[in-house]
Design a protein around this nucleic acid. Sequence first.
DNA 1: ATAAATATTTCTATAGTCGAAATATTTGTT
DNA 2: AACAAATATTTCGACTATAGAAATATTTAT
Lengths: 160, 160
Amino acid sequence: MNFEGFYDLLLDNLKKLLYPQDWIDLDLSFSKSELLALLFVDRYEEIIMSRIAEYINVPMSTATGIVERLVKKGYLQRKRSEADRRIVVVTPTDKGKNLINEIKEVTFHYYRAVTESLNEEEKKLLGKIFIKIIGTLNKVTREEQENKPGTTMIKKIKIE
Amino acid sequence: MNFEGFYDLLLDNLKKLLYPQDWIDLDLSFSKSELLALLFVDRYEEIIMSRIAEYINVPMSTATGIVERLVKKGYLQRKRSEADRRIVVVTPTDKGKNLINEIKEVTFHYYRAVTESLNEEEKKLLGKIFIKIIGTLNKVTREEQENKPGTTMIKKIKIE
DNA sequence: ATAAATATTTCTATAGTCGAAATATTTGTT
DNA sequence: AACAAATATTTCGACTATAGAAATATTTAT
């Protein structure tokens, strides 16, 4: 596939890519951040507010709102840490855990739909490609940020 | 890659996927819809409001706001159709076209970085997977919509 | 004992979205 | 030709999500 083809394909499907709420069409009205937060909390089983804000990349004040809504909907619960009473620990409720399992199932459904036509070797290769791509994308992004004028930054250069 | 690995990878990178404004980090503060609208208008060079609303999947009232902002920022322009004066035709300005070219360049930059990092075999498989993924997303979404109760629809069933 | 640091929430302003009503224009009907 | 219905779009008002600043509570350092 050449670039032109890729670009057209991207345009055709960008809309779908941009609204992943619709990927996981489970009749739940979640904002993107809420979805992220829920998945993140489930992953670590127990997590503090600052980590959530850090992970979804929003200020604490926003994170408060996101978690607040998930608590109101009954998917998460908050409690103060005993060791340090400034800290708020967030955990999924049973309802939250059930929901995440549903999401995992839907995800699995997609995974299988894509991979079922592949043989073992291809599946293995796919994993490698995936990781390579993500690595490359991260690298390019980082390089671009370093090249950005205006922002003072240390640029690492290779000495051969 | 098995499902567990895939799911972890997805979680790690979902955040990045969800905020594609940051992919195309060009120092312009665009909402997702604005980006979509701009790319869409550029693609057809000349397009009417209803098509825009349809494409980005928002009500007309929202589309009005989106285009309004892009016009204010100088990327798009509106004019009334001579043939039918109810219709508003939207076209990109020169500034808008330049911006889109920049976006295309950045996209190409990423595209090349990824394709260069892969060997022939990997590229081939990737192309296959890409098309498969998009097809699957389209299919699954469609099926889910057909299954939604309330909306009357024809459901196609396979006879074996 | 008190100042500084840390974790979080509350408050206020702002941007984007949506549905309903309003406006302007065209098409169909008699 | 006259007027109702249909179409394309915008305006208005309500609501949600987000962010920065100030406030609160608690812990750590001096």
